[in-house]
Write a protein that binds this DNA or RNA. Structure first.
Lengths: 211, 211
DNA sequence: CTGTGTCCTACATGTTTATGCAGTTGACTA
DNA sequence: TAGTCAACTGCATAAACATGTAGGACACAG
């Protein structure tokens, strides 16, 4: 049973969402609120798994609310809902921890499916919004790190993983090599960069960004 | 009428996709190919609007192909298809210009809908993949600066030491506090920054400064 | 063919970190 | 004056890391 909470200032919409969720097997609406004034209290009381959050509400906006939620209740998944696809608001929401993003014209069946998907760890997004995210993503993913010429390709690759904050295990899994090999490369990186800990290596790598 | 081209090395799958597309009103399959060896030629000849591209093919991979397509035929939308959700390949595809990304277990109805969506400028993605993109996006966009406002003076002090590459011992000595206190503060820092390792904290701290 | 370089794997050992639990102090405040 | 809070200390345990040693596979240059 997935517990859903709704934050939506429009009465009719809120009611119809409430009915929709409660009328669906596997879902139950733990609460429906017109604003997020008593956000913490309402969440503590209804302990939802998934929150449907209108982005534009009187008082605290959905964007502020999602930040608070993500801070205080990291396990709760939040789906943002909006009528317009305003880029800035989308990106702000994502950075604040929203897990999904749907336009309000999303058909009910899709909405319900999205609730389940987000609960299972996915990130349902209206395609047009996904498109904007991808675009932004492409721009940002330009040249990341300056290659250290004295490092081999492999070593630079591993170094980038370190800068991603990955652990040995994660690197081994991501690069499909054994953890001992990760160790091996990192040892060589340390020697070449004249450091002897992960964080020192990370700092040195980041400080030499392309500019 | 949306013209679709299929690149898929598995014969059965290719045929069934071909049938599926051709059996759908509004879509027509302009061509189905087992690999992208004659990519340019095949595309020029079939001039599709949307390309379904298997990510793993003998010869030129889908990732290389999408780069070429994006370069030579910028108007063509490409949907990548894959069995596994390998992060690197996903990100590489996106950077190379793919507009959509679906796992191969996507139900036919969704696939067909995705073709239409991508044609209309959207970016259909399997939720689990969208999730990975969002995660990466969040990391790259730098943390919400608010997180850093939450740090106390003492915590900021310790965080700076971490960025200097210092170990717990060194920090304890430098700040004249016990190593357990260092641990205590670092724990709190981790919680506030939502990380759980030294290097993650360092990365987050450094990114926030550069913007 | 032999050497050199790169990438890879493995095992062992000691150190550093991450995290849970428990408690003290002094300062500010309802 | 009791209560809250930031800073602090301590201990315990498991996981992650740093580093030494020892070797195998492959490609390419001399």
């Amino acid at each position: 049973m997935i517990r859903v909470a709704i934050f939506e200032d429009n009465f009719l919409l809120r009611e119809s969402l409430f009915q929709l969720v409660n009328g669906t097997a596997g879902l139950i609406c733990a609460g429906a609120f017109a604003n997020s004034d008593n956000l913490i209290y309402n969440i503590s009381k209804t302990y939802p798994d998934v929150v449907l959050m209108d982005i534009k509400m009187p008082g605290k906006t959905g964007i502020e609310s999602v930040l608070i939620l993500h801070d205080q209740f990291p396990k709760i998944k939040v789906i943002m809902q909006t009528v317009v696809d305003d880029e800035d608001k989308i990106f702000a929401s994502i950075c604040n921890g929203a897990s999904g993003y749907l336009l309000k014209n999303t058909p009910p069946a899709t909405l319900l499916q999205s609730i389940v998907e987000v609960f299972e760890g996915g990130a349902p997004m209206t395609p047009i919004i996904a498109q904007k995210v991808l675009e932004k993503f492409r721009k940002q993913s330009g040249p990341t790190l300056k290659e250290f010429n004295n490092l081999s390709n492999r070593e630079n690759e591993i170094l980038e993983c370190l800068v991603e904050g990955m652990s040995y295990k994660m690197i081994a899994a991501a690069r499909n090599i054994s953890i001992d090999t990760v160790r091996f490369h990192i040892r060589n990186i340390y020697e070449k960069l004249h450091v002897n800990s992960k964080s020192e290596a990370v700092v040195k790598a980041m400080r030499s960004k392309t500019g």
